[in-house]
Design a protein around this nucleic acid. Sequence first.
DNA 1: CGCAATATTGACCATCATCAATTGGCGTGG
DNA 2: CCACGCCAATTGATGATGGTCAATATTGCG
Lengths: 257, 257
Amino acid sequence: MRTLASLPQRYRLIHKLESIANLTEDERKALLDLPIILRDYATGDDLVRDGDRPRECCLLLEGFACRYKLMPDGRRQIMSFHTPGDIPDLQSLHLGVMDHALSAIVPTSAAFLQHSDIRDLTQRFPGLLHAFWRDTLVDGAIFREWMIGMGRREAYQRLAHLLCEMMLRFKAVGLVSDQSFNMPVTQAEVGDALGLSTVHVNRVLQKLRENGLITWTKGTVAVLNWEALQEAGEFDPTYLHQDGRLYQDHEATAARI
Amino acid sequence: MRTLASLPQRYRLIHKLESIANLTEDERKALLDLPIILRDYATGDDLVRDGDRPRECCLLLEGFACRYKLMPDGRRQIMSFHTPGDIPDLQSLHLGVMDHALSAIVPTSAAFLQHSDIRDLTQRFPGLLHAFWRDTLVDGAIFREWMIGMGRREAYQRLAHLLCEMMLRFKAVGLVSDQSFNMPVTQAEVGDALGLSTVHVNRVLQKLRENGLITWTKGTVAVLNWEALQEAGEFDPTYLHQDGRLYQDHEATAARI
DNA sequence: CGCAATATTGACCATCATCAATTGGCGTGG
DNA sequence: CCACGCCAATTGATGATGGTCAATATTGCG
């Protein structure tokens, strides 16, 4: 049986969890010993479908995914974006039925962890149980923040805020370099996430560029003026609860593994 | 030291939890033995404030509360409504800092449970730990549904959807009789929850009444046509995951296999 | 009875959606 | 190598949902 330890991306989950909780050496080891099933997906494929009753959770290794729900008329609301290191359907551990779907936005590979294995793990390591619980709570906090955006922020702010959030989340898994990160989503997808039309996303994006806040080409976002971007989005990172460890040192963590 | 068992509303929490999970006799008893601190609040008071680092969770006994966040310009976004039986800040068990506030919408009384007592309880009763975790996950599912509403549903649908949700949630704690329930919120508060202006809430409300779907006087909502209301809100109750007993059976079955 | 909060109504306006057309990038097959 | 096709990005024009402002009723309550 294959385990997480056999993968080149094995450190992603550890980084992610350590961005929100503190892990012991034993816990790190136990995580890496998790048996996995690898699966690859093409753009647009569903990893988990609305209505499913999963018996496994899915750890993203490469690519980019989103959770979404379709309206009866076919329109789509995207509820979250997910980077490598995320376990977007961790909730399925305790909510039997999926009330939304998870799909790959670009070619994506994922490691599937059996619920039974996770239950076993969290029984042996209560610290991991709390880390996972905490992860689902941060998830909820992000939903709340998106609600605020859609309810009370206008398009320009909303987009700026999303970019700030993604910047920090990518940073937490070591995927930001030189103030840029890979954000491989179409403007239509951004619209579905922010509750805006594609056309409007395009126009607002142009303003962000005109104002010298960002650059966004070929799926790569470069933040030119972090201060101004935060201000434009009224961004306060508290809700991300990325305070698992005060000072993160990814190099050190990577070296240990 | 006072315990939950000494209160007339002691069964609210049990009802609530049993609407989403299955409790054993021992677990029910242990819940009722929780030491509590009682506090009463007037309309508009904060039970928990943005930025707090709580060491206790708050179980609503009477009244009605909401979680909200203020924008820099003073506008407000309400992120959830809470009925007696809810523990709206259960998340504070694992997220140190409050990223929003909790306030009383009408005179409200609450029983505060120390984090340490809850931790103790969940250590002795893993079933309760899972029930609490599940509760926070249902919370998240409701946030997602509200996001969908604000992103993709227009005002009329949005309001109808909210009423459907509240109906089922009140039902779960035994607070619906004769297709009516107490919804003591102003139109301004509904607006802050749905991302609408007070004026628009008023107009949409009138349409719901004109169409014979509901009545809403003196804080009491009467649902005149449940079918039509669900249809108007495109309401699908799956996301409330009010299938605690069913679900637990599946889990137990799964565990046995 | 009278104040204050809430609900209601009307007029006007802004953000953003919709529709439609054009451009540009890129891979594929001839 | 180029034409074709497809998808994403872009632009323009028009309109609708819902916001804002302001005034007036209504209700609750001390």
